[in-house]
């Protein structure tokens, strides 16, 4: 679309800008401020420069948390994206079944995050939980408080349960926007199911998938409430992700300087990954145009 050049458009942006600035810029400045100081009390503080950043980057527990975080995010993306697409393809398209399935599938998305943790805590406990009890009855010594493998598997299962619906919902909606004529033409062209998916459905899903993957990456990278309620980060620190390390440091230990520096590093990692992903996608689309 040809957009008109008009700087008065700023007036339309202004209210939004003020609000977001209030919620984003002021706090961010505070964080930056802390990150370069050592605060003893309200009146005593020293300028430390990049000291905290160096310390944080060399902290082995945080390095481990970062690795753990990446492992977690990539795992859930690898499961949730294909599964979500599959569910979207399976969801009925018409009638009351469509509404019913849509509501059922979306349900986990609208449950407060710590309640999600509680639901899974109740579900997986060995004594009163259906899943934990069943696994034990089947002879598997399931125990998320003692076995890191069990804890990991459970958190991933919980995340799949919680977030696959987002991918499914976005894809379902994307699929619904494909006109019938495309499917009809494909039948006339004797295209296989796979060819229909590969050449009609997937191309139309590219945009929603980019958004879905971005949102999922960002949220999985910020995950806090669900594992905190379910495992408390344990056993040991095997399921302690970045948000939890950060909150423990900032609120629990009141280490303002280091935690501020850590915050900024954390934020930058997310920005960087998202930016790389985004530009990669955009470049792919640009190349398409250049070929023309």
């Amino acid at each position: 679309m040809n957009k008109v050049y008009n700087n008065r458009a700023w007036w339309l942006i202004l209210p939004m800008l003020l609000l977001v600035a209030f919620s984003a810029i002021i706090p961010l400045m505070t964080v930056v401020n802390y990150s370069v100081q050592d605060v003893f009390d309200a009146h005593t503080r020293f300028f430390t420069g990049t000291e905290w950043f160096k310390e944080m980057l060399n902290d082995p527990t945080l390095q481990a948390a970062v690795l753990r975080q990446f492992a977690f995010s990539l795992t859930v993306l690898a499961i949730e994206v294909p599964l979500g697409i599959g569910i979207a393809l399976l969801m009925p398209k018409k009638g009351w079944q469509a509404s019913a399935v849509l509501i059922l599938v979306t349900m986990p998305l609208l449950i407060p995050w710590n309640v999600v943790g509680s639901i899974w805590q109740i579900f997986t406990r060995g004594d009163i939980g259906l899943m934990g009890w069943s696994l034990r009855e089947l002879g598997y010594g399931y125990n998320i408080t003692a076995s890191p493998v069990d804890a990991w598997a459970t958190i991933i299962l919980m995340d799949v349960w919680h977030w696959t619906p987002l991918i499914a919902l976005l894809c379902y909606s994307g699929l619904r926007s494909i006109p019938d004529a495309y499917y009809q033409a494909a039948r006339i062209d004797r295209a296989s199911k796979w060819a229909v998916f590969r050449y009609i459905q997937l191309p139309k899903l590219t945009n929603v998938l980019v958004i879905g993957v971005l949102l999922r990456f960002m949220h999985s990278f910020m995950i806090y409430a669900e594992p905190f309620v379910l495992t408390g980060g344990g056993p040991g620190s095997s399921t302690t992700f970045l948000s939890q390390s950060l909150t423990t440091m900032a609120i629990g230990q009141q280490d303002l300087g280091p935690s501020a520096a850590f915050s900024l590093i954390y934020f930058l990692i997310i920005l960087l990954v998202t930016w790389v992903f985004y530009t990669a996608i955009m470049n792919m689309q640009k190349d398409d145009n250049k070929e023309a």
């Binding site: 006109p179 004529a181 495309y182 009809q184 033409a185 006339i188 062209d189 004797r190 295209a191 296989s192 060819a195 050449y199 009609i200 191309p203």
Partner: peptide, 26 residues
């Protein structure tokens, strides 16, 4: 049987050549 619809239906991601070849390759 072949059918041509009111609005063009093309496979966006393919080249024109691949579009034309599609019904045969299938």
């Amino acid at each position: 049987i072949a059918q041509v619809f009111q609005f063009p239906v093309i496979y966006d991601t393919m080249t024109v050549y691949d579009n034309l070849a599609f019904p045969l390759r299938n």
